[in-house]
Simulated scan of single mutants.
Amino acid sequence: MTKIDIISGFLGAGKTTLIQKLIKEVYAGKKVVLVENEFGEIGIDGGFLKDSGIVVNEINSGCICCTLQGDFRNALREVVKKYSPDHIIIEPSGVGKLSDILAVVKDVEGLQLNSYSTVVDAKRCEIYHKNFKEFFDDQISTAACVILSRTQLVDEETLQKDIAIIRELNHNARIITTPWDDLSGQAIIDAMEGSTDGFPELEEEEECSCCGCGCHDEDDDDDCCCGHDHHEHEHHHHEEEECCCCGHDHHDHEHHHHHHHHGHDADEVFTSIGIETVNKYSVEDIALALSELDEHIIRAKGIVPSTDGSWLFFDYVPGDADIRIGSPAYTGLITVIGDQVDVDRIKEIFAVK
């Protein structure tokens, strides 16, 4: 039986950093597979993690609910069959719902749920709770363990506000508040595992749900219950009229949606742009580009060639940017995610056509 550890968290919360710590300090020498469910056109985190020696199976798809129903479930089955690992670490998309991930994992034979946790950025908990309630709050309310990141960067008042928000959403979850540098990976995994007792009871959706309606069967050519024909993705839906789990146009990834509607999928609220480039950048070039991103951008990351012959990794969330040396990728990769993304402006900022 393969043990599953699900580490969810909103965009830029620090999931990859935590996974790197656990891989190094806890999973060294064990047969581990990391499965990523990326939102966006280009998956980048595999590049960040490949130096660890862990197998990375990235699944990229425009429609998150369809990814969960098809590609993601099949990927888990394939991982179990092909690798027979001791552990599978699932890193869901930052805009994925933990409840959806758990529903898929429960449906795959040969898996034992070991832990399901959510990483929450202590600096941005309040603002994300306010602006992205449906996705952010689901990750917290569903988790057995909430792991606060960057607690060393906030004051006591902010930390208390964060805890109050988490407790309002989830009365029972363990909350890790100690800075990660002060904790061993084993101490963190002990808290994650110790808070879990099998699968939680997931609430049944009253509305149509793409994660279980059966409408995405390969041999079914009819329109699915979520309102679009998966063979002809050229529908323009009205959220008030359609079943809301998938009511988006798959061709137009530049939506401008309100955040507080219930039952939306990530593609309805967030826009992602993926760029491949051979451009060379200096650290100063990347720092300048990131400084020009507007308030609608909530996540940017990339692996690009440097002017000095090395490669640069960068991570960005509002107010914080990290640029460092990394391993080469097959080409330069940049991903930008936001609630409203001006694609032309992003290309201008990074000097790509």
Rank of each mutant, 00 (worst) to 15 (best):
N60A: 15
N60Y: 05
S61W: 12
G62P: 13
G62D: 15
C63R: 15
C63M: 15
I64K: 08
C65S: 12
Q69F: 09
Q69C: 09
G70S: 11
F72S: 00
F72T: 04
R73V: 06
N74S: 09
N74D: 10
A75P: 01
L76W: 12
L76C: 05
R77F: 05
R77P: 00
E78D: 13
E78P: 00
V79S: 06
V79P: 02
V79C: 00
V80Q: 06
K81A: 10
K82F: 08
Y83I: 01
S84Q: 14
S84C: 08
P85G: 03
D86N: 11
D86Q: 14
D86M: 06
D86I: 04
I88A: 03
I89M: 06
I90P: 04
I90D: 08
E91H: 09
E91L: 04
P92I: 13
S93Q: 08
G94I: 13
G94M: 14
G96P: 01
L98G: 05
S99Y: 11
S99N: 08
D100F: 11
D100I: 09
D100G: 01
L102D: 09
V104D: 04
V105H: 02
V105A: 12
K106W: 12
D107M: 08
D107Q: 12
E109G: 09
L111C: 01
L111F: 03
Q112L: 08
L113V: 09
L113F: 07
N114W: 04
S115H: 03
S115W: 07
S115N: 03
Y116A: 10
T118W: 14
V119D: 03
V120F: 07
A122Q: 05
K123D: 11
R124I: 01
R124T: 10
R124M: 09
R124W: 06
C125H: 05
E126T: 11
I127V: 14
I127T: 13
I127K: 10
I127L: 05
K130R: 15
K130S: 13
N131G: 14
F132K: 03
K133D: 15
E134L: 14
F135L: 13
F136Y: 13
F136K: 01
F136A: 00
D138C: 06
Q139S: 05
Q139F: 05
Q139V: 07
S141T: 07
T142S: 12
A143M: 09
A143R: 07
A144K: 10
A144G: 06
C145G: 01
L148A: 06
S149N: 12
S149A: 12
S149H: 11
L153C: 11
V154P: 01
V154A: 01
V154K: 02
E157S: 12
E157K: 12
T158V: 08
T158A: 07
L159T: 03
L159G: 00
Q160R: 14
Q160S: 13
K161C: 05
K161R: 15
I163M: 00
I163N: 00
A164N: 14
I165T: 11
I166H: 10
R167Y: 09
E168R: 11
E168A: 02
N170P: 02
N170D: 06
H171A: 09
H171I: 02
H171N: 09
A173Y: 01
R174V: 10
I175E: 02
T177M: 04
T178C: 09
T178Y: 04
P179L: 07
P179G: 06
W180R: 07
D181C: 07
